[in-house]
Design a protein around this nucleic acid. Structure first.
Ligand code: MN
Ligand code: MN
Ligand code: ZN
Ligand code: ZN
Lengths: 136, 136
DNA sequence: TAATAAGATTGTAATCATTACATGTTTGTA
DNA sequence: TACAAACATGTAATGATTACAATCTTATTA
């Protein structure tokens, strides 16, 4: 079940993170735009409503939300980071043609190999590339 | 079985890629340094032997080798790309403490979900993070 | 062999996402 | 209101990567 805006506000309060206007708007944007947006997209998307919002604030907020475990940074071969409201672990598929990043569910834990038995795994990423049905 | 330097030279010839001195040295470096080096590391590692080698040539060569399917770029949350002599698909584990990137074998194909049945998958990446046994 | 052209290499300058930092603003508390 | 802590902002710096133009190598041809 995807957390609501209110759920997330509660989580932030629980972690003693101030609910500033900018932070709430950035969170709201992430909830409403589940396309794994870039900082640039968040900036452009909020500009009409908060003309003074600075990119630095967006970077700061995303770092704080990531440290709190509410947001996850997606790394692709592009240089621009993309952000995902963290829900359960899931895989990402990027279409090389249209650039869309799709979510897919995957049971990662079932394939963790013995090679890693003595490692502490803190983060798991699955990232595929190719062509989406629309672009085929 | 890991390909030898000679194997790779044959593959390059087969693909009509010139075997310049610099390209062969960069390849040799990648074969002998299987630590997923950065461009900076390759540059520093070859500097004594080829003082005139430029980073542009390293970037160009890595791109050509990647297009030929002989080298794979590893993307991490760091901004510096790292390079791997492409063998079979395998997973990567980065230790957050010492920075080492470990290889591990994983049967990715066994977990490709139905979600992606209508997608064409061209590239698969598995990237874990955490702590290695040495750093525990 | 000399002339030529294509391909490789090099160094410098530009690009662009991200971060550092100093300044200004808001918020909560007494 | 007065004060301090936390936030937000804008500008400047950073650093990996790319663009580009000039130079060097190599192979081919006359
Ligand atoms: Mn996602
Ligand atoms: Mn590897
Ligand atoms: Zn597509
Ligand atoms: Zn380690």
């Amino acid at each position: 079940m995807k957390p609501t805006f209110e759920d997330i506000k509660q989580q932030l309060k629980a972690k003693n993170i101030s609910l500033s206007y900018q932070r709430l708007k950035i969170l709201e944007y992430l909830i409403e735009n589940r396309c794994h947006p870039t900082v640039e997209m968040i900036f452009a998307g909020l500009h009409d409503e908060i003309p003074t919002l600075s990119k630095t604030t967006i970077y700061n907020t995303l770092r704080i939300l990531e440290e709190a475990g509410l947001v996850k940074e997606i790394t692709t071969e592009d240089k621009e980071a993309r952000y995902d409201i963290a829900t359960e672990t899931h895989g990402h598929f990027k279409c090389e043609s249209c650039g869309t990043i799709f979510d897919f569910s995957v049971d990662i834990d079932s394939i963790i190999p013995g090679d890693l038995s003595r490692f502490v795994i803190k983060d798991k990423n699955i990232y595929f590339k190719g062509l989406c049905p629309r672009c085929l």
